[in-house]
């Protein structure tokens, strides 16, 4: 019996598929075609919300992620951080994830060189990680300096920092930027802080978390979702702080397209083989 090309492809060593993907990724990264990037409603809403904050307002960066997610989330976080600095807002970060302090340090390292007049402890502050998850978030609503033990990520007393002026509880912040990837994350912030105390929150999410977070956006419990690298690229575009995300949008398109083509080819093969089996009178499993 003649073996179809699709059957042959089915038995192909998966490493050839990996190699083909890698080749396509290299080609599309090295040969961008310049597809237009448009700013979507979500990113525009996030930008306008930060734009509308009065000078000196405090923005809380909830850096609840780790290095594995940095590639996807950092472009948006950096662009938002830069926007905050440009608007003379105060950025303070805290985290329920042990790596959160290190993540904020990375963000500061990216942003600080562009704003040499901004100072640690005056314009931005890294409070680092504290255990307890949502229980710690609850403590932030009762007494923020006590909840962080009166020290920042590096063990220095926060009472000496001018940035802390007027910040007694987390309800004093004008906006929360939740950079979240899992638990604790957006739902915990909604339950403990934003919903009971009406604190607005924008979340920066990896793409995989978007679908499950959409109900909170639709119900008005979130201001906006800045999703994944695409959200970062859009924020870079709208804020004028061009970064790494914008340059990769073309490549992302074609890398996605490769996977779509694989799905379509796989299904053509599936139906072709099914048709051949049917016409040759073969039974076989068609479930």
């Amino acid at each position: 019996m003649e073996v179809s090309i699709f059957t042959k492809l089915d038995s192909l060593d998966r490493r050839w598929i990996f190699a083909f993907q890698a080749l396509v990724f290299c080609i599309v990264i090295l040969n961008p075609v310049g597809l237009a990037l448009n700013v979507g409603d979500q990113v525009r809403t996030a930008f306008e919300a930060i734009e509308s904050l009065p000078e000196g307002s405090i923005v809380w960066f909830a850096t609840d992620y780790q290095a594995a997610n940095a590639a996807e989330l950092e472009p948006a976080a950096i662009a938002i951080f830069k926007h905050c600095m440009q608007k003379n807002l105060r950025v303070i970060s805290g985290s329920t994830w042990p790596e959160g302090g290190a993540m904020m340090s990375r963000l500061i390292n990216y942003v600080a060189p562009e704003f040499p007049d901004k100072e640690y402890g005056v314009d931005y502050l890294n409070l680092g990680y504290r255990p307890g998850g949502q229980v710690w978030l609850q403590q932030l609503t009762d007494d923020l300096p006590a909840a962080v033990g009166g020290i920042d990520h590096f063990g220095d007393p926060i009472s000496a920092y001018p940035i802390m002026e007027g910040l007694e509880v987390i309800q004093d912040v004008a906006m929360i930027i939740g950079i979240h990837v899992g638990t604790p994350g957006t739902p915990e912030y909604i339950r403990v802080i934003t919903d009971p105390h009406n604190v607005p929150m924008i979340t920066v999410l990896p793409a995989v978390s978007v679908a499950v977070t959409m109900p909170y956006l639709a119900s008005g419990q979130l201001v906006s979702i800045v999703a994944s690298l695409r959200g970062g690229a859009e924020y870079e575009l709208i804020s004028g702080f061009s970064g790494t995300a914008m340059t990769g949008m073309d490549s992302q398109s074609f890398m996605n397209l490769t996977i779509v083509i694989f799905v379509i080819l796989g299904n053509i093969g599936f139906f072709y083989n099914k048709y051949k089996e049917g016409s040759s009178g073969g039974g076989g499993d068609n479930v």
Partner: peptide
């Protein structure tokens, strides 16, 4: 890469 491989072999409109 695993998604790419699975996209071809497993994601079928059965």
């Amino acid at each position: 890469f695993w998604i790419g491989s699975a996209a071809y072999r497993a994601f079928r409109a059965k």
